[in-house]
Amino acid sequence: MFEGVERYTYIDTRIGPLLLAGDGDSLHLLSFQSGSRVHHPRDGWRHDPQAFPEVRRQLDQYFTGRRKSFALPLVLSGTPFQNAVWTTLQTIPFGATTTYQKLAQRIGRPAAIRAVGAANGANPLPIIIPCHRVIGTNGSLTGFGGGIETKRFLLAHEGVGKETADLFQT
C-alpha cells in the first residue's frame, strides 16, 4: 500500500496535525496523528513542507465552512472491494450520514456489512473520502481511525447531531 508515494508534509488543522503523502500530482494518504489509525512517513518518503498546496487550500476551506466536497486528484490503492466502498463514500453528501448496512446495500453486497466496516476503517483519505459520515444502524458513532471525538467534531462541523442525523437514502 502507498506505492508511488514520494513526498509528505504535515499540516495543522482544527482537529490537530494531519499527515499528507503522495506523488507529485496526487494524494495517496491523509492520516490523523491521534487515534487508532495513525500513519507515519516511511523510508524513502521525502519531507516537503510546501507539498500539496491545493489539498491545504481545500481542507482550510472545509474547516472554515466554505467547502462541502473536495475536488482533488486521489490515488486509491485498495482491493477492488475497498475501492468500491471508498468511491461510494464520496457520494454521501455533506451534512448527511448513512449506515454500514445501507452502504453494503448500495455497493450491491447487502450481506457484506462487516467487510464494508473494515473497508471504511481502512480508508486512506479520511475527511476527503468522508468515512466519518457512516454510523451504526442505531445511530451510534461507531469506531473511527481519528478517534470518536474527532468523528463527533466532523459531524457537528457538518451540522449533523446525533438526534438530527439525516440518513442518506440509497
Score class of each variant (00 low, 15 high):
residue 1 M to Q: 08
residue 1 M to I: 03
residue 3 E to Y: 09
residue 3 E to D: 11
residue 4 G to Q: 13
residue 6 E to V: 07
residue 6 E to T: 08
residue 7 R to M: 11
residue 8 Y to I: 10
residue 8 Y to N: 12
residue 11 I to G: 08
residue 13 T to N: 13
residue 14 R to S: 15
residue 14 R to Q: 14
residue 14 R to P: 15
residue 15 I to W: 12
residue 18 L to A: 14
residue 20 L to I: 13
residue 22 G to K: 08
residue 22 G to M: 09
residue 23 D to G: 13
residue 24 G to K: 14
residue 24 G to I: 07
residue 24 G to E: 13
residue 25 D to C: 05
residue 26 S to I: 06
residue 27 L to A: 02
residue 28 H to A: 14
residue 28 H to I: 08
residue 29 L to M: 10
residue 30 L to V: 14
residue 30 L to W: 09
residue 31 S to I: 03
residue 31 S to N: 05
residue 31 S to C: 04
residue 32 F to N: 03
residue 33 Q to P: 00
residue 35 G to A: 01
residue 36 S to K: 04
residue 38 V to I: 09
residue 38 V to T: 03
residue 38 V to W: 01
residue 41 P to C: 10
residue 43 D to A: 13
residue 43 D to Y: 06
residue 43 D to H: 11
residue 44 G to Q: 08
residue 44 G to R: 13
residue 45 W to T: 05
residue 46 R to W: 08
residue 46 R to D: 03
residue 47 H to V: 06
residue 48 D to A: 11
residue 49 P to C: 10
residue 50 Q to E: 12
residue 51 A to N: 02
residue 51 A to M: 02
residue 52 F to L: 07
residue 53 P to H: 05
residue 54 E to P: 00
residue 56 R to M: 04
residue 56 R to Q: 08
residue 57 R to W: 03
residue 57 R to V: 01
residue 58 Q to G: 07
residue 60 D to L: 03
residue 62 Y to Q: 02
residue 63 F to S: 05
residue 64 T to Q: 11
residue 64 T to A: 10
residue 66 R to V: 07
residue 67 R to I: 03
residue 67 R to G: 03
residue 68 K to A: 04
residue 68 K to V: 00
residue 70 F to K: 06
residue 71 A to I: 04
residue 72 L to C: 11
residue 74 L to V: 05
residue 75 V to G: 04
residue 77 S to Y: 07
residue 81 F to T: 03
residue 84 A to R: 15
residue 85 V to R: 01
residue 88 T to F: 04
residue 89 L to P: 04
residue 91 T to G: 06
residue 93 P to C: 14
residue 93 P to V: 15
residue 96 A to W: 09
residue 97 T to R: 12
residue 97 T to A: 13
residue 99 T to D: 08
residue 100 Y to W: 12
residue 100 Y to V: 06
residue 101 Q to F: 09
residue 102 K to I: 11
residue 102 K to M: 13
residue 103 L to E: 09
residue 105 Q to G: 09
residue 107 I to T: 14
residue 108 G to C: 13
residue 109 R to V: 06
residue 111 A to D: 15
residue 113 I to G: 07
residue 113 I to R: 13
residue 115 A to L: 02
residue 115 A to I: 00
residue 116 V to H: 09
residue 117 G to D: 03
residue 118 A to Q: 11
residue 119 A to L: 04
residue 121 G to H: 01
residue 124 P to Y: 02
residue 124 P to K: 04
residue 126 P to E: 03
residue 127 I to E: 02
residue 131 C to W: 00
residue 133 R to L: 12
residue 135 I to S: 06
residue 136 G to P: 05
residue 136 G to H: 14
residue 141 L to M: 09
residue 142 T to N: 12
residue 144 F to P: 06
residue 145 G to H: 05
residue 146 G to F: 10
residue 146 G to M: 05
residue 147 G to L: 04
residue 147 G to D: 01
residue 149 E to C: 00
residue 152 R to I: 02
residue 154 L to W: 03
residue 155 L to C: 01
residue 156 A to H: 14
residue 156 A to L: 14
residue 157 H to T: 05
residue 159 G to L: 06
residue 159 G to R: 11
residue 159 G to D: 09
residue 160 V to S: 10
residue 160 V to P: 04
residue 161 G to T: 15
residue 163 E to V: 08
residue 165 A to T: 12
residue 167 L to I: 15
residue 168 F to D: 06
residue 170 T to F: 12
